[in-house]
Write a protein that binds this DNA or RNA. Structure first.
Length: 210
DNA sequence: CATGGGATTGACT
DNA sequence: GTCAATCCCATGC
């Protein structure tokens, strides 16, 4: 795959932002279609290349036990940001999905850096492009996403998700079990851009069309 | 109120 | 390959 940085230097603001209707659909579908979309904050970001779906009906989801103090955000309006603190070190970014009242979200696990690469390098403290956003904790550090962003809007807030620029480039995604969970491993709700060099871990399984 | 466990990462053997 | 860092939150007494 060619380097996006060479081919896509255009201004991110020119592209359409996803709306609440996009996020209000079934969470696995939203997760699949978010691959190829753009994640941006203050002109810094890139192409989403890896996501995972989480739904209140399965035990790996924080909403599994209902709207607890931490999980209540998962039940809010589709398109809300759910940010939670993991392992005492990392803020992980999710997009709340399904209609309001249903606890579900898409974890953004990896981004291919495109815009504001210098600032990402600065924040990450390393300059290898493949190490900038190839993990849920890495990309939040590169884009300066913090707990203060929890429950903010992805529809009209400072963190933005835009429709894909080149639909063809990421039409095929790899589907696999989710990473780092101890239950509900049977669900293949991890979605990766086929052939991407910016994933958090290799996509070992087969591929499927969007 | 005390305890245990993470939707992880980076450094080190 | 192993392992520590570090803290919020869910659980249970």
């Amino acid at each position: 795959m060619a380097d996006v940085l060479e081919r896509m230097p255009a201004l991110p603001d020119a592209y359409s932002r996803l709306d609440a209707e996009f996020f209000a659909r079934p969470v696995d579908l939203v997760a699949r279609e978010l691959v190829g979309c753009l994640l941006l904050r203050d002109g810094v970001g890139g192409v989403i290349v890896e996501t995972e779906a989480y739904h209140e009906s399965e035990s790996a989801c924080h909403a599994y036990r209902g709207p607890t103090p931490r999980a209540k955000v998962l039940f809010e309006r589709p398109g809300t940001a759910y940010v939670y603190f993991s392992y005492g070190m990392h803020s992980l970014l999710n997009a709340v999905a399904e209609p309001q009242g249903v606890g579900a979200a898409v974890l953004i696990r990896a981004v291919e850096p495109v815009w504001g690469v210098d600032r990402m390098i600065q924040r990450r403290g390393r300059d290898d492009l493949r190490q900038l956003c190839s993990g849920p904790g890495k990309l939040t550090q590169a884009l300066a996403v913090e707990m203060a962003d929890n429950s903010g809007s992805l529809i009209d807030g400072p963190i933005a998700i835009h429709a894909p620029i080149e639909k063809e480039r990421f039409r095929v995604v790899a589907v696999a079990p989710r990473i780092g969970i101890s239950t509900a491993r049977e669900l293949e709700w991890r979605f990766c851009a086929e052939g991407s060099k910016h994933l958090s871990a290799p996509a070992q399984n087969g591929v499927a069309d969007c």
